[in-house]
């Protein structure tokens, strides 16, 4: 096994572990309710998820738009499947299935 590759993986992996685990382990106490840190952390989740939605869709829209109809169909199916039972798993699976079907039909 290539030693440089192992060193690269260990350095990157150790940093990933540090980023993911240390902030939780080093938290001394809960942030003051209503304080700036509490509001920052409460907003981090919605901000992160919104960011990931946009970041995952953007490559399909820019610089060259592609598969827009499957994208619209998949997104609409995800939303419509979520509404009745508010199930994330069902909405994800139905959205991906509809995207694949639309992609196949238009191919």
């Amino acid at each position: 096994m290539n030693l440089d590759l192992v060193v690269l993986a260990v350095l990157a992996g150790a940093a990933n572990w540090g980023f993911r685990a240390l902030p939780t382990l080093l938290m001394r106490r809960e942030p003051h309710p209503g304080g700036m840190m509490a509001r920052f952390l409460a907003a981090t989740g919605p901000a992160a998820i919104a960011t990931l939605v946009v970041a995952s869709v953007l490559p399909q829209l820019h610089p060259v738009p592609r598969a827009l109809i499957p994208l619209a169909a998949g997104a609409a199916a995800t939303v419509l499947a979520f509404l009745p039972r508010r199930s994330v798993a069902a909405a994800t699976l139905i959205g991906a299935t509809v995207y694949g079907l639309a992609f196949g039909l238009l191919a």
């Binding site: 919605p46 998820i49 997104a75 994330v88 909405a91 994800t92 699976l93």
Partner: peptide
């Protein structure tokens, strides 16, 4: 993408 969208709806 569908998972992120569904998660966004859920929160």
């Amino acid at each position: 993408t569908a998972l992120f969208l569904a998660l966004l709806l859920s929160i």
